[in-house]
Nucleic acid binder design. Sequence first.
RNA 1: GGAGAGGUUCCCGAGCUGGUCAAAGGGGGCAGACUGUAAAUCUGUUGGCUCAGCCUUCGGUGGUUCGAAUCCACCCCUCUCCA
Length: 406
Amino acid sequence: MTVEEQMNVLKKKTAEIVSEEDLREKLERAQRASRPLRVKLGLDPSAPDIHLGHAVVLRKLREFQDLGHEVILVVGDFTGRIGDPTGKSEARRQLSQDEVVENARTYQEQAHKILDPAKTRIAFNGEWLSKLMFEDVIKLASKYTVARMLEREEFSERFREERPIYIHEFFYPFMQAYDSVALRADVELGGTDQKFNILFGRMLQREYDQQPQVAMLMPILVGTDGAKKMSKSVGNYIGVAEPPSEMYGKTMSISDDVMMTFYELATTLPDDEIEAVRVGLASGRLHPRDAKRRLAREIVALYHGPRAAMAAEEEFDAVFREGNLPEDVPEAPISGADLEDGRMWCPRLIVAAGLADSTSEARRLIDQGAVRVDDKRVTDPQAYVAVRPGMVIRVGKRRFARVRVD
RNA sequence: GGAGAGGUUCCCGAGCUGGUCAAAGGGGGCAGACUGUAAAUCUGUUGGCUCAGCCUUCGGUGGUUCGAAUCCACCCCUCUCCA
């Protein structure tokens, strides 16, 4: 493939490239020397579930792989023990080495749903960062000023709002940048929120007389709430490893406003088909619900195949449009010893079945008319329920349990 | 080291001339209604406890008081200014 053709593939759906000229030059040089580019992605090891937001970046990496380039996933085992200020108003919790290794394993497994495992290398940045001496760190730190560090939105905002910024957080960009130096990265990918860190890598590579890496910044996907960036800690994410029904349901729960964004960033539909959906919605010929159903099917199919997507849709319709029970209702073991005369106080039963955290919460749910036992609504928080094996307790629309008596 | 401002329930943020405070308001979560879907909107709810009552919460520890998120002492932490 020619360099221009590669450029066209790589530019597609990418928010920003710093700089395009550098990328073109690197591609040309790589082609002449028939040496693949080394493309780096840093992974935060604190939240091991890969979600659709990560997938945007991973798909771009996949394109690099398909163009014959080399992908290196850098697991921040070292940085994970420091905490990344990105997108956080507070410093992150520090992780133990065991947690980091376990998370990395999960990451790798999930990333391979998108990446080509044969062309993916995993590296742990502790490998080189833990070898640096205090003297080395001081030298690194002497290359950058506080004022420049505060250019970073995250820091300046906290500074302005008089919220704490800990000194060690300033080292995060250095560490990530040093990763690029250690790996001699040609390209680093990340969300647009990673711009500062990735550019920092360019700066540091120059200091080490390396050709600065190209920053490839991918758009940020909003979460299911339609407001904040998709992230595990906010809890507004759709994970690539989630079961089809969960994925389908979560997609159906996004607000109509962000539907098109999801079409663009979370599916692999060709541009003209996405455009057709947009036009259909705008003209009113396409019902928003139907557009969202299709979106949900596309997303599920991407990770579980088209058959699972159809099945998820059928189940969704059965459960939420018709109010039926889902395919597999989780079993809740109830100890026979807790029964009085074969009966149990309803709030207690709900808690025992794992459908509420406390009897207080269960009482409230009953008061609110959310509880059904075998399709019969329970309205009295004092009620006792005759417990039979196989009976189904439903709390709200989404929580179910089938009773098993042990 | 000195001076000042703060630390409140999941988050933000009132309260802080002592009881009427399990603590306003907003966000988020959950539920109900409606519906076009786990959209939107509206309403309710949001510490625990077999619950018209009781128990534990307002940075920590002690104290004053019949009674403390509210007053006092000491300690810990954050921010600002000075050095």
